[in-house]
């Protein structure tokens, strides 16, 4: 029962915000309007899923924004000019993430600090590759991100695909269940005969994979990159996971919720534009929306107790 409530709140918040946006700007209720509203949702949703993989195993990733920026820089330079080399670099990044997960577990290091240190490393590499903003998106990536599917715009379709894929991977599959078990009780997973170090490496590797996809999607939309392009993703992705009903400990996460959380955060920014709020108060209003939605969790939690 509790798991149903977990997903209900993100859906309600998104619906309320969407309703408010349509009320403010009825013309947004169209294919083109939705596309504009959720334009940047795809990379944010992918980054949120990446962060969710880490939170799933009770860790937190403070380097994700710098990592996505680095991927964006590689995508806009090497992947465009020398696709094979670029691809190799991206694969190496994913492997590095998996190794990090294993090292963090093997040496019992605090993930918050290791990822903090890694954020300097990723940021430094990004500056090294692209000292000043520039680069070009590979053409295939550009056309993939601006494709116009029938019925619903690309951002919405892609979000549904991401949510479904992550749901099958984490909630439905055998290994996903064990992965969540690592967050719930790593010792009993270990006793049951699983190698926790491999599972942690897998969780981090998946985070790396989704982080890479987020960086590529971002370049496909932005057409160029810079070393700071996605720094805010670190905090946005954490907020998205929690907004989607996830919790910091216990492997209690919801992939569908996380994607909806990412959409809500994206929509919040668009909504504030429609409100014609003074730019001074835009970020403050985003903070307020975040607090309001999370405060609503209190009500749902009480209801959950009654049921």
């Amino acid at each position: 029962m509790a798991s149903h409530y977990r997903i209900l709140l993100p859906i309600v918040s998104l619906a309320v915000l969407l309703g408010a946006t349509f009320y403010m700007q009825p013309r947004a209720m169209s294919y083109f309007g939705l596309n504009l509203l959720f334009n940047l949702a795809v990379p944010i949703a992918l980054a949120t899923i990446a962060q969710m993989m880490i939170i799933m195993v009770n860790d937190i990733d403070l380097s994700l924004g710098a990592f996505v920026s680095l991927v964006a820089c590689i995508t806009a330079t090497y992947l465009n000019d020398a696709p094979l080399l670029g691809l190799l670099m991206l694969v190496a990044l994913i492997v590095t993430y998996a190794v990090l997960g294993a090292v963090i577990h093997a040496l019992a290091l605090p993930a918050i600090v290791v990822t903090l240190g890694m954020s300097f490393v990723w940021g430094g590499l990004a500056l090294f590759i692209l000292p000043s903003p520039g680069g070009t998106s590979p053409n295939w990536l550009r056309s993939l991100m601006t494709i116009k599917p029938p019925i619903a715009p690309m951002a919405v379709v892609a979000s549904i695909v991401i949510a479904a894929a992550a749901h099958i991977l984490i909630i439905r599959s055998r290994v996903g269940t064990v992965l969540r078990g690592v967050g719930g009780n790593a010792r009993s997973v270990e006793r049951a005969g699983w190698s926790v170090i491999r599972l942690k490496a897998l969780a981090y590797g998946l985070a790396g994979l989704f982080g890479v996809l987020a960086g590529m999607a971002l370049v496909g939309l932005a057409t160029s990159a810079d070393a700071n392009i996605a720094l805010r993703y670190t905090l946005i992705s954490i907020a998205g996971v929690i907004l989607g009903g996830g919790e910091f400990v216990g492997g209690k996460i919801s992939p569908v919720g996380a994607v909806i959380g990412a959409l809500t955060l994206t929509l919040a920014a668009s909504f504030l534009n429609f409100l014609r709020l003074s730019p001074d108060w835009q970020i403050g209003a985003q903070g307020t929306i975040l607090i309001l939605v999370l405060a609503a969790r209190l009500i749902f939690r009480r209801k959950g107790l009654e049921v």
Binding site: I238, D280, W281, Q282, G284, G287, L290, I291, R301
Partner: peptide, 27 residues
């Protein structure tokens, strides 16, 4: 107050609140 009254995780509470402080500073 956010952490105690709304039972928000401190990471999220201080993150969301910092956005508001930033806005006040800009303004």
């Amino acid at each position: 107050a956010l952490i105690f009254l709304l039972r928000l995780p401190p990471i999220i509470a201080t993150l969301a609140a910092s956005l508001i402080y930033q806005s006040i500073a800009i303004w």
